[in-house]
Computed example of a mutant assay.
Amino acid sequence: MDALSRIKQLGMPRRNDELWTFFPIAKIPAPEFPDACTCDEDFSQETDFAALLPIAQNARPMVRDIPDGANEMALIKCNNDFGHTVLNIGKGAKASIEILDNKVLHALDAERFDINVGEGADVEIFFANPANDLPLRFRHFRISQAAKSTVRFSAIERGNGISRVSIDTFLNAEGANFEIRTLNVLSGNAESHHRLHIYHNAPETTSTQLSRNLLDGSSRASYDGSVIVGNGCTKANSSQLVNTILLSEDSSVSVKPVLKIYHDDVECTHGNTVGELDAEQMFYLVSRGIPQETAKKMLISSFAKETFYPLPDSPAKKRLLQNIQ
């Protein structure tokens, strides 16, 4: 079944759809579809509307192959309202991929990224764009990893609209490692929603999730993270942590961790904290002569930077920390 047939079969997201639990689905405009789909790939098992939308709209795929053992940096930018990028990263390659925003205003922007990571490859994927006025944006990532590969996914999101990042990661061979670090800096009526499915399909695979939120005004954030550990996947290790600082009474966050574990020799954890700026730390700084507003900015900056400090020195880490500055 092609993407167009499948998305019409699914219909628009509904309130009872688990993939869209926290998203304001009433704000999704009903798209107009072409008469036929130019991609003949089978999407009969796909269940996410956002993953299908660019394909159903006949977004012309941009394919990039990074050879075995290569060391490359790349910038990716979609110039249309619908985009489809395919990255094939070779065995033992090192790649740094930065995703730039399309700043042309559309009622709805939707991008899909299919990323195939070869054995022993080391890949960083990141975006840290300035605040934008895009009203509604979807980004969907489908990441497949071979043995002993590492993918580090990092993002800072800010803006005035509504965004949704969905990720399906498949750790398909022993030693595959996936790490995601995200920071939402939101104000006004902005919203940011993350939905993850991480599939541990082999023994001794590792995934790490850290999401942090700084929410002001009436902004909203959500994090819907599922980890699925398959039968026989011994010594799989997964952790998830969401930290949120609410800077106003009207801001809010929703978190839904899901663990589906079909093997007993694994280690999987999750945690969630929500609060205000630490009053004791504020008192400590102010009591030493630091103006209150400056002290507040120092604590916020420290909270944000700690999201990315554990990353190895790389273009991604440098760019992310510069963005926070």
Rank of each mutant, 00 (worst) to 15 (best):
G217V: 11
D35M: 11
N71S: 12
N201G: 11
R139Y: 10
A173M: 02
N189I: 12
D42Y: 13
G175W: 05
I97Q: 06
K77T: 06
N102H: 02
A279I: 12
S96T: 05
A56C: 08
K148P: 03
I324N: 07
K91R: 15
L285G: 05
N102C: 13
R139Q: 15
V253I: 15
V258G: 02
R220G: 03
N189W: 13
K27H: 10
K317D: 03
E174M: 00
I228M: 05
V63W: 08
A131R: 14
G230S: 07
E124L: 01
N243D: 15
I162R: 08
R152Y: 05
S163L: 09
S239G: 09
P257S: 00
I28R: 04
S302Q: 03
D101W: 00
N88P: 08
F82N: 05
D122C: 13
D17P: 05
L215R: 07
R212G: 00
C37Y: 06
Q209T: 13
P203H: 04
R6S: 01
A295L: 05
E306P: 00
G69N: 04
K296V: 10
N58W: 02
E46V: 14
R288K: 01
P34N: 00
F113D: 02
L215N: 06
K296G: 12
N272T: 15
K91T: 14
D68I: 02
I324A: 06
F22D: 00
L259N: 07
